[in-house]
Structure formats: structure tokens, C-alpha cells
Amino acid sequence: MSDPLTDAEDDAATPLAPEERHDLIPSYITDRDQLNEVEQLGIAEADRWAFSRKRDVLDEGFLLQLHRRMFQDVWKWAGTFRTTERNIGVEAYRIGVDLRQLLDDVRYWIEHDTYPPDEIALRFHARLTWIHPFPNGNGRHARLAADLLIVALGGDRFSWGGGGLIAADELRRRYIAGVRAADNHDLAPLLEFARS
């Protein structure tokens, strides 16, 4: 049976497991539009909080706290690693190890000027999205984390296509295409999209 709240509109959206769906906090939400709206309020607040002072985005505890701040008023599991398997991302038991490896890699790239700052931030975004640490909200979390990293590296926030990715189908398609290309070791489409 179809669930208007959790059914994915495209194959890139992460479907929720039934037990995760039951962890929805606002009881009045009945469809994806309402869910997107209330999630966006939390994301906007988390954005203000995250940029209010210097943060160490390459800290696992901070990344968990960032996700919690983004979704704490919507999902009971906000800020906790997923425990269920997905059609995308690493196996749930590998999340912590793969995330620590990513954070170490990014620190190395920064310390050794391995890549230009935009590329470091977008490689971070792509790998964080690939790991897919949370039940949902991974792309939005990874974009905010990449924005925090590029600012910490002295750059400007990314434009991410210049519009809202939830409502704009064409922007979302371009973003997903860029992420998928990055998964296949071609960062150019994501670099282009992030600064368009």
C-alpha cells in the first residue's frame, strides 16, 4: 500500500524502514510536502547555529550534532547512525569506521594541499553522501557540512544550483546526476553544479 509520507518520488530518495517511519515526532504530518516544510524549518535553524561560530566540521561528534540540530523536531532518530540496510551507502555496521576514514582523508588533503579547496569540500560531500550515515537527510546534511568546510577553508558557500532542491525537480536531477558521477570518480559535474 502506498504511503504519501514516505514513498519516494524518485529513485534517489531514501525510503524509510517502517520502524524509522514510526519515529516521526509531529503527529499532524500526513504527506511529503508537509514533511519537507517542517524539515526545512529545522535545517534553516541548524544552518544559523552552525555558522554562528567556528565549528570543527571534521569531527564525528559535530556531524552527529549537526544532523540532530537539522531534524530533532521531526525525527526521534535525528543525529544517530542508521542501523538498517539501504539501497545506497555502506553497510550499517561500517558507518563509524568509514566516516572516521573519510575525516582522516579530508584532514590529510587539507594538510598536504592535495586538491583545491572546492574539490576537497565536494569530495567530502560525495563520500559523506556515499556512506549515507543516517536514516534520511543525508544529502541535505552533506551539503551543509560541505558549506561549513569550504568556508573554514576560506572559500564562499556553494550555491548548489541556486535554488531549493526539494521543490525544483530539474535542480534535484542535476544534483543527483552530479553525486552519481562523483560516486564513479568523476567530480566535474558536481563541481559545476555546486558553483552554478
Rank of each mutant, 00 (worst) to 15 (best):
M1Y: 12
S2H: 15
A13K: 14
P18N: 06
E19L: 12
E19W: 15
H22A: 09
H22Y: 01
D23F: 06
L24M: 04
L24V: 09
I25H: 09
S27D: 11
Y28F: 15
T30G: 09
T30F: 03
T30L: 11
D31V: 08
D31N: 15
D31S: 09
D31F: 11
D33L: 12
Q34F: 05
E37K: 10
Q40D: 11
Q40C: 12
I43W: 12
A44Y: 07
A44G: 10
D47A: 02
D47T: 13
R48C: 01
W49F: 12
S52P: 01
D56M: 15
L58K: 00
G61F: 10
G61P: 04
F62N: 10
L63C: 07
L66H: 04
L66T: 07
R68C: 02
R69F: 06
R69E: 12
R69N: 09
F71H: 03
V74C: 08
V74Y: 06
K76H: 11
A78K: 05
T80I: 09
T80E: 15
T83W: 09
T83L: 14
E85V: 07
G89P: 06
G89L: 03
A92C: 01
R94D: 15
R94V: 13
G96N: 11
V97A: 14
D98K: 14
L102T: 07
L103F: 08
D105Q: 10
D105P: 00
R107E: 12
R107F: 07
I110P: 07
I110T: 13
E111M: 08
H112N: 06
H112E: 09
D113W: 02
T114P: 00
P117H: 06
D118Q: 11
D118W: 00
E119P: 02
A121T: 06
R123L: 08
R123P: 07
W130M: 03
W130Y: 14
H132P: 08
N136P: 04
N138Y: 11
N138H: 10
A142Y: 08
A142G: 07
R143I: 01
L144M: 08
A145R: 10
A145K: 05
A146R: 01
A146D: 03
A146V: 02
A146C: 09
D147N: 13
L149E: 03
L153V: 00
D156E: 14
I166K: 10
I166C: 01
A168L: 13
D169I: 08
E170M: 14
L171F: 06
R172H: 13
R172S: 11
R173G: 00
R174Q: 15
Y175R: 10
A177T: 13
A177R: 15
A181E: 12
A182V: 01
N184L: 14
H185C: 06
H185A: 14
A188P: 00
A188L: 13
L191E: 03
S196C: 13
S196W: 04
